[in-house]
Each structure stands twice: as C-alpha cells, then as structure tokens.
Simulated scan of single mutants.
Amino acid sequence: MTTRTSESTASARVRVSDLFGDQLFVHLGLVISVALMALPLVLAVFMSTQTPTEVYDVTNVGFGSAGFSNYWTALFDYNLLRYMINSFMMASIIVVGKVTLSLLAALALVYYRLPYERAVFMFILLTLLIPVPVRIVPLFQLMADLGWANTLLSITGPYIASATAVFLFRQHFMSIPESLVENARLDGVGPMEFLFRVLIPMSKGMIAGVSVITFVYAWNQYLWPLIVISAQKKQVVQVGIKYLQGASQSGLTQWGLIMAGAVIALLPPLVVLYALHRPLLETFAIQQK
C-alpha cells in the first residue's frame, strides 16, 4: 500500500513538473515576443530624449541629456500640436460618420426587403477591390469640382463610406435571433427605435472594434492629406512628422526631434484603444480578471 502511494505521488510530481516546464517555456516565449515587438518603441523613446550628437553615437543606449525639450520643440515650435488637433477632428468625424452610415446600411440590408439585395451587397463588397492609387486622381478631381480641396471635408468625406464596416455590422445583425425581431415587430417597435434600443446595445463590442480600427486608420493617413491639403496649418499629424525631417543642427538630422514627434503621435490612438478595450475583449469572449 505504501509503495503504491509513493508511486502515485511521484507520478503526480512528474506531471506537475512537466506542466510547469511547459508553462515556463510558453511564458518565456511570450515574454521574448513582447520584448522584441516593444524594442523599436523603447528605442524611439530613448532617442526622443537625446541630442543629435548622442543619437549618432551608437554606443549611447539610454535616456539622453535633452530630456523633454525635444517634445516641447516638436509640439510648439513646429506646430505639431496644431496638426494633432487637425488629425483628431478628422478621425473623430470619420469614426462618427462611418459607424452611423454603416449601421443604417446594415439595418437596411438585413431587416428590409430590397430588390436585388444580394447584388447590392456584392456591389458594396466589390468596392474593396479598387486599389487606392487608382482612386486618387479622380477623387482629387471630384474634390476640386466640389470646391472641397484644402478643407476638412476633403479629408473626411471620402472615408465616410466603408464596405468593411457594412459587412461586419451586417454579419453581426444576421446573428441576432429572429424571435427577437419578431417580438419587436409585434410590439410596434419601428426600425429606428429597434436600431437604437435593441441593435446598438447588442452591438457595443462590434461598434467599439470598428471605431478603434477606423480611428487608427484615419489617424495614420498620410498620402491623401498630403495631396489634397495645400495649407500647412491645416495638415495632419503624420504629414507634420514629415516636416520635422527638415530640421537639422550642424548638418545633422535631428532624429531625437523626429522620434519625439512619433511618440507624441502614438499617444491618442493608444488612449482610444485603452478606453474601448473592455467591449473589445467582450466581443472576442476574453475574460478579464
């Protein structure tokens, strides 16, 4: 009896040891992966506090002597704060417009009997196949004909419609039980009331996900604002970072100043992602402790 007990105890210890070893390797791999992904950001933060001489010294790894002066210079001397306000206004308008229009389009596609409904939906998806370079020239001509060039409308209007958002909301609405829809109809609930009182509360995670993706996408726009906006004071933050490359000191590019601008431009999307992370995790059924 004692021998069997000792054998079972030994086997249990072996299983625990194997399990601990497997988890150790998994966590070690995760830590290494996170460290490798975070390394460029850490180096950018270090460089943002360094002077041009310190940046070009490859042996200097760590915080520099410039401190936060590069951040202050980028924000106020090079008007990066103004560009960030422009980008925030642009991204906010695009998020609100895209989510609103996509919700209404998905509502019409799912809960209304439309002629050639599938053909309309396929036509919406086909717009995803048109590459951006093909659309730039005719879109710029359209903005010029409408008199929108060099205005906020030119960098927000073309991004309001989104086939991807319509597709995501449509698929989500189709997963809602039909019995819920029938009960709402029997109670005399109208389409818009059904949207605001039923669909939107049940789609918080999807709306949060689309909003985050849209905000980050709009915040990182560079090519289209560079083409359609001619006034420098109306430019967005990504183009503003490009302006920082023109700064030089003693013939050396001020990479510390550029990295400070890049770190500053990273903060608003990070804040938005953190603010909406709970509904995002609920959408993917990830439990939080």
Rank of each mutant, 00 (worst) to 15 (best):
W255A: 02
F196R: 13
I286N: 02
A10K: 07
A91Q: 08
S250K: 11
P225Y: 03
V42C: 14
T253G: 02
Q287P: 04
I130A: 14
R13L: 13
A285V: 09
P131I: 10
T127I: 12
F63V: 05
A108D: 09
A184C: 01
A275F: 06
R113T: 12
F46R: 03
K98W: 01
E54S: 00
G21E: 02
Q287C: 05
V14D: 11
D57G: 00
D18L: 09
V45I: 14
K242W: 11
L103E: 07
L75G: 12
A161K: 05
R4Q: 12
G147N: 13
V228T: 02
F46G: 00
G190Q: 01
R113G: 12
S33V: 08
A10T: 12
A119Y: 11
R113N: 11
Y116F: 14
V95C: 05
A231M: 10
R4M: 08
F173Q: 06
S203P: 02
S6D: 13
H277Y: 06
T59N: 15
Y112F: 15
R278Y: 01
V272L: 12
L142V: 14
F63D: 00
L266E: 11
P40Y: 06
Q221N: 07
K204N: 11
V55K: 03
D77T: 13
A12I: 14
T53S: 08
P279A: 07
E117Q: 15
L24A: 10
T164H: 06
Y111A: 04
A144V: 12
A66V: 01
P279T: 04
T151P: 12
V236F: 01
T53H: 03
H172N: 10
L252G: 13
E178M: 07
L152T: 00
N79C: 05
A208T: 09
Q171W: 08
D187E: 08
Y243P: 02
S87N: 02
Q221W: 04
A262D: 09
R118T: 14
G67F: 11
K204A: 05
V96W: 05
G157W: 07
V61N: 09
S48T: 02
T53P: 06
A119M: 13
L195E: 10
P225N: 04
V272M: 09
G240Y: 02
I130V: 15
L276Q: 00
L75S: 11
F20I: 07
A10S: 12
A218I: 02
M174D: 04
T51R: 07
T151A: 10
F63L: 15
E117K: 15
S11F: 11
L168R: 06
